[in-house]
Write a protein that binds this DNA or RNA. Sequence first.
DNA 1: TTGCTCCTCACGTCACGTGAGGTGGC
DNA 2: TTGCTCCTCACGTCACGTGAGGTGGC
Lengths: 266, 266
Amino acid sequence: MLTIGQLAEYAGVTVRAVRHYHQIGLLPEPERDASGYRRYGGMAVVSLIKIRILANAGVPLSQIGQLLQADEPAFAEAVARIDGQLHDEIERLEASRKQIAQLGAGDSLVLPAEVVAYIDRLRELGVSGRMLEGERDGWILVMACWPDRVAEWIPDKFAQLEDPRVVRLYLVLSELLDSDAGGDDDGDDGDDPRLVEAADIMADLLEQAYAAGAADFGNEAQDSLPDLLDSLSLEADPRSQRMIDLMRERGWNGWHRIERLADPPR
Amino acid sequence: MLTIGQLAEYAGVTVRAVRHYHQIGLLPEPERDASGYRRYGGMAVVSLIKIRILANAGVPLSQIGQLLQADEPAFAEAVARIDGQLHDEIERLEASRKQIAQLGAGDSLVLPAEVVAYIDRLRELGVSGRMLEGERDGWILVMACWPDRVAEWIPDKFAQLEDPRVVRLYLVLSELLDSDAGGDDDGDDGDDPRLVEAADIMADLLEQAYAAGAADFGNEAQDSLPDLLDSLSLEADPRSQRMIDLMRERGWNGWHRIERLADPPR
DNA sequence: TTGCTCCTCACGTCACGTGAGGTGGC
DNA sequence: TTGCTCCTCACGTCACGTGAGGTGGC
């Protein structure tokens, strides 16, 4: 007859696990010897091994008892169900593997291929790592808010890259992000000339789009996405606030949610 | 700005999960609005999505914070490690699938192919389902105790099946098991003739083996396996006790652990 | 005004892990 | 005698779930 430790070893579980199975009534308490030790027979080994097979398959302990009592057809049905769940779980883990692989590669994350291609194109154009991270985070946000619209927007974004001013804008912002957040935070003695250049280009582009009749600049009426993108920029780099101010000076309100200010800024 | 419910929906988690991440410091507490509600920006959505990707990959929440702070090489290394763990987990689940499939098919369980073949052979010879279950449980026990010796024993077991008496023994025990445990438990008024026949065959076989010089009948000195097999039989069917008694009358002690009694039973 | 979301405790769940304090076996 | 196993509470862990009781927003 086996002690609890031997039983546990045969079945490949801990002693505590065996005691736990007793507590919840999954494994019947065996008889005790003279000194109060539990003594197990062969049946306990067999039961415990079956319990572990089901538990390893993810079956809750609360169901294993009934399962081992069930008759042939009921048991076979349950086994088929468990097998299906295992299959699903394996697929979930395989999808998860792909996701973290992307996460490790630095880009894409959960992003669709078009967006990855767009970010890759930016990299080719010389946009820096920090800026690419910002782009990626922005697209993650876009995917979370409007997953269905991304496919429509991407071609426009590619087309815009044909304009050298757009590329220049990306590169200037790149440089800005890479230059560390700049000595003191509060001293506003003169703007970084690159920030000014970025604002100038931006205003220039918007002016042209406005003249061409682009009424809402892709801002959907009640959607929070542009606001979220604004807040993302602000959280990523406080200098975004200054950028927004500069845009306001040039007659534009907001950065991602864009409105033409009718009057010059007050 | 988003409420906690909107944030949770974008990231595909529960509101409670978001609050939990605040509690453990994984996601920073955002500012509150006038009525004390949390208000989130775009950064929170991005952070939450990254957290979920890592959590879904099985990374403990307690590690995710540091992971997202880590620099490129450290992060890439961690991702490689996580990917390896996912790979292992998938393999574990696939092995588990095979095990429960076997469990569903009724036989083998964790048994090696030779044992499965032996049980299949018994089935062909007409051994009943209940008896086969007993055999299987016995072999599970053997695997738990002496996994390495099974391969040596199986050829002998097959060879024994060439002897018609061995087959007859299996069939008689089969019939016994299938006939329900027999009216009253305590009334020992006359043995089932099949039980007597089984004991006779068994004694006959042992006598022959003893005469041929098989000294220890495969019983290893201090091993508990034969005792466990005895206890398994006893637990599976109380009539096993009577079988042991009958064997003792015929000059043999034990059933699976077998000793020749020097003298006739006292 | 009704229903929905939000808030903060705080206990519950699942499958054990991990001491705490004590006794038995070799 | 020492070290190892066994015993029974009983609290801890992990990632939330689930009310409990109350307030704010539309």
